[in-house]
C-alpha cells in the first residue's frame, strides 16, 4: 500500500526538509560567500577579497598545526576507544550476576555533556589537588601536571574523550558479538581451533562491519572536537588548539568572520568527505541486509 505521494506526503515531509534547508543549507551557502570577503564580527562594509582568505590559510602555520593536531587526535582517540571498547565488550560477552548494572554504568559516560564533564575533569586532573594525582602518589608514581604541562594537556583532553566515548565503541562491539551465530563457534571447537584462531577468523571479521561504522561515526565527531578543548584550556592554547578551537578563536575572539568562514569551509569539506563515506557505508550495509 505504498501510495504515490501527492499532497499529503509532501505536507508530512515538507516542513522538516524546509527547516533543514533554512538552517543548514542556507547558512552554509552564506558561509561560502562570507569566506570570499573581509567581513568582521562587528562593523559593516565587508568587501570581496577574492580567494585571499584561502590563500592565507595555506600559509598559516597555526592552521597547519591545528590540522596535524586534530588528525592525531582523531587517529589516537578513535583507535584507543575502539580497542578498549572491544576488550570491554569481550569481557561482557558472557552472562554474570549483576551484568545489567555493570553494563549500564559503563554506558553512562557517553550520555553526559562533554562541556560540563570537561570542567569537572579539571578538578580530578588538577596537578596539585586532583584525585588522579593523589591516587598516583599513594601508589608511588609521579604526579604530572596534567592540565598545564605543555606536552601533556593535549593527551589529557584526549583521555577525557576516550573516557567519554569508549562506551559507544563497546555498545556497538557488543551488538557485533551478539550477531555472531553460536554455530560458528561450535564448528571451530570441533575443528579444535585455538582461542586466538577463533578470535582472528570468526570474532573479528564478523564484528568488522559494525565496528567500521562505529569508527566512521566517531571519527567525524572527533574531528569536530571543541567542547573539551574549551573546558580544559580555552580556544587559544598552542598545545591543544584543534581546528574547531582555531575557528572559534579566529571568528569570535579575533572577529575575523571572512577568514573564519574560509576555515569553516575547509573543515566542512573534510567532515563531509568522511560523512559521505559513512552514508555510503550505511547504504551498502542496508543493501547487504536486504539481499541477505
Amino acid at each position: 500500500m505504498r501510495k504515490q505521494g501527492g499532497g499529503l506526503a509532501w505536507a508530512l515531509v515538507g516542513p522538516t526538509l524546509l527547516l533543514l534547508v533554512a538552517f543548514n543549507v542556507f547558512p552554509l551557502l552564506w558561509n561560502v560567500l562570507l569566506s570570499f570577503t573581509n567581513a568582521e564580527l562587528v562593523g559593516e562594509g565587508a568587501r570581496s577579497v577574492g580567494g585571499a582568505n584561502y590563500a592565507r590559510i595555506f600559509d598559516d602555520p597555526l592552521f597547519a598545526a591545528a590540522l596535524r593536531r586534530t588528525a592525531l587526535f582523531v587517529f589516537v582517540a578513535v583507535a584507543l576507544e575502539l580497542v578498549i571498547g572491544f576488550v570491554l565488550a569481550l569481557a561482557l560477552k558472557r552472562d554474570f550476576k549483576g551484568k545489567p548494572v555493570v553494563l549500564t554504568t559503563l554506558l553512562v559516560p557517553m550520555m553526559l555533556s562533554p562541556a560540563v564533564m570537561g570542567l569537572y575533569w579539571s578538578l580530578i586532573l588538577n596537578g596539585n589537588y586532583g584525585l588522579l594525582n593523589q591516587v598516583l602518589g599513594a601508589l608511588g608514581f609521579g604526579q604530572p601536571q596534567w592540565l598545564t604541562d605543555r606536552d601533556l594537556k593535549f593527551w589529557s583532553i584526549l583521555l577525557i574523550d576516550v573516557w567519554t566515548w569508549t562506551p559507544f565503541m563497546m555498545l556497538i562491539a557488543l551488538a557485533g558479538l551478539a550477531s555472531i551465530p553460536q554455530s560458528l563457534y561450535e564448528a571451530a571447537a570441533i575443528d579444535r581451533a585455538s582461542t586466538w584462531t577463533t578470535f582472528r577468523r570468526i570474532t573479528l571479521p564478523m564484528c568488522a562491519p559494525l565496528l567500521g561504522l562505529a569508527v566512521l561515526f566517531r571519527a567525524t565527531d572527533a574531528l569536530k572536537q571543541f567542547d573539551l578543548v574549551m573546558a580544559i584550556t580555552g580556544p587559544n592554547d598552542g598545545g591543544t588548539q584543534t581546528l574547531s578551537a582555531l575557528l572559534y578563536q579566529v571568528v569570535f575572539r579575533d572577529g575575523k568572520v571572512g577568514l573564519g568562514s574560509a576555515y569553516a569551509i575547509l573543515v566542512l569539506v573534510v567532515v563531509m568527505a568522511l560523512a559521505t563515506v559513512f552514508t555510503r557505508y550505511v547504504e551498502r550495509m542496508r543493501g547487504a541486509e536486504a539481499s541477505a
Partner: peptide
Amino acid sequence: FVLSTRFMPPLAVVVP
C-alpha cells in the same frame, strides 16, 4: 540529506 546534516560542524554554520 537529512542524515548528512547530523555531521555538519556547528561552527561551519554558526556565523550566518
